[in-house]
Design a protein around this nucleic acid. Structure first.
Lengths: 324, 324
DNA sequence: CTGAAAGCGCTAACAT
DNA sequence: ATGTTAGCGCTTTCAG
């Protein structure tokens, strides 16, 4: 920066202003500085800038795994929204382990991120406190917290599960099954489903939980398991469209007619849901928009805009298709 | 850090060493410092550390879009490998625009990333030069560069396309079609396919290029298009399993028998390929491993290990399944 | 509209 | 094994 200043015949601070507040400079000065920057191929060091200004222009996002499409959609929406404002995205994967999340939060705070986006509302001991103390804007996603750390954008997983049960019951299904992850959010969807089944005085929901649910192969295997018992379920609710797709494939192989013999319902309404044959009934939860809204919330806070709602419930919608 | 030093009755540099080189301290000193850190809840500022040490422990990765599973797999592999060594990942999306890539490269260099992972081998003017001048370790992925910027890990997209053609021709297919993106790597796969068709003196390959190919719906629409003409192709090669899945769905709806009437071949061997019905023949390209290898190459360089191969050809394998 | 001085929080290089 | 000094490259604050 000193070199550029010398080349342009100004002081360092003027170069800094040319970069960060160009309209505070006289047009001629600005032009001179820009030319000097071009001649020297100067690349400003944002690390030094962050240290001096105490703003990093980095947002951290922590997801269970980026290889799962539902989170990839959210991260994509987040990254796109941040890029337009020249913020960068630091990505962390927990592998569904809360202690990994705690470690990532610590590491990201050490990087002095300007904001943090978390998946879910259940966190390791001490994480809430550390986050609050750090005073970093935080958005929890993919659920609605009873007591948010700071801000949140999501939907009620419990209500979604219950809505699925009611929907299936209303269509005459009696033997409900669940295939999904054992993580916190999937567990809530299952709880909602069981709740709905109880309302209708149905027998217990058959459960086939998968450690880290995401592949169609796991869905297919889970369905095979469910069929092994005495009475095959007549409806399966999955915590993820990818799993549901696997079940549809397995049904095709077993010549199980969908929806006649068994209704299959997915979750998240990924692109595959509206393309697969038979087209998959799913619950749309606006995965990409969640990321975009999280970005908007963070940026609003960082701009000092009067905080609107701290918690945004994006809701969910059952998208009815051929599989039910 | 000064506070911690005072609390522990040592100097600042000793605190620094407790964090970065604990085995250079006497056990008692180390314990004292750690206790002080715990009592004060001290979180070291990595920004300041980066500035002072000139190492950021951040690696940047730039992909067309994270919402496309093939890149999500690579990023996942990369992130996992880096996390084990306490490096963080900065993520950028180009939306398949080369000028966006150039902007992201500039921004990441400004962040003083310790390494950079790029998708593909074709870049905007000036990017190569800027990267070389910065002296940052770079890994290009998903292709093999004729003249690498620095390092690379990938496979030959041209050969993969040609292998697909030969495979299909050997099974008696004569009217080949291609459905895929119009990006550089897809274009190479298409060129390979056309090359293979020429070898066998087949008629021209029918091409249905999609701007940014990734969803099953796009695959289905593309297949509908291909069928609209006079002679339906008897084999379709897709630049992505997600597109191929869409074609299989569309075939099911049109009662087009696969593989009897048309053979369908995918690319990348994503989880869906081995789960869908009929199971999809695909070309395995080790997407996740590409990320892991890219990480290994960068870390090796950063450790100063004698550079083994600068370019790793992971190759590809045709995984034959029911769809052909 | 532009500049001078000070310092962000840490680590490299050299002591001892 | 531990400490001292200097400085990383920028922005803040206060002046003019």
């Amino acid at each position: 920066m000193a070199d550029v200043a010398r080349e342009a015949g100004v002081s360092a601070i003027t170069v800094s202003r040319a970069l960060n507040a160009p309209d505070k400079l006289a047009p001629a000065t600005l032009r001179a500085v820009r030319e000097a920057i071009g001649r020297l191929g100067y690349v400003p060091d944002l690390t030094a800038g962050s240290l001096a200004s105490n703003r990093s222009r980095i947002v951290g996002v922590i997801v269970p795994t980026i290889a799962n499409s539902i989170f990839a959609e959210t991260v994509g929406g987040l990254a796109a929204a941040l890029a337009s404002r020249h913020y960068q995205l630091l990505l962390g994967q927990t592998g569904y382990r809360v202690d990994e999340e705690a470690a990532l939060v610590a590491a990201f705070l050490g990087r002095r991120v300007d904001g943090l986006v978390l998946t879910g509302v259940t966190h390791a001991r001490g994480v809430r406190g550390r986050l609050r103390q750090a005073g970093v804007p935080v958005v929890e996603t993919w659920d609605l917290p009873a007591r948010p750390i700071d801000m949140a954008v999501g939907f009620s997983n419990l209500d979604a599960g219950r809505a699925a049960a009611r929907y299936l019951v209303a269509r005459g299904r009696r033997r409900l099954a669940f295939v999904g992850g054992s993580d916190d959010r999937s567990a809530k969807r299952l709880a909602g489903l069981e709740d709905g089944a109880r309302e209708a005085c149905l027998p217990d929901v058959k459960v086939r939980a998968i450690l880290t649910a995401s592949s169609p192969a796991e869905g297919a295997a889970a369905f095979a398991d469910l069929c092994a018992g005495d009475r095959r379920p007549d409806a399966v609710f999955c915590s993820n469209d990818t799993l549901a797709a696997g079940i549809l494939f397995e049904c095709a192989r077993r010549r199980v007619a969908v929806p006649r013999d068994v209704a299959v319902m997915g979750f998240a309404d990924l692109p595959i849901a509206s393309a697969i044959e038979p087209r998959l009934t799913s619950i749309q939860v606006h995965a990409a928009e969640m990321g975009a809204r999280a970005a908007a919330m963070l940026l609003g806070r960082l701009d000092g805009t009067p905080p609107a709602d701290r918690v945004a419930d994006l809701g969910f919608e059952i998208v009815e298709r051929a599989s039910t």
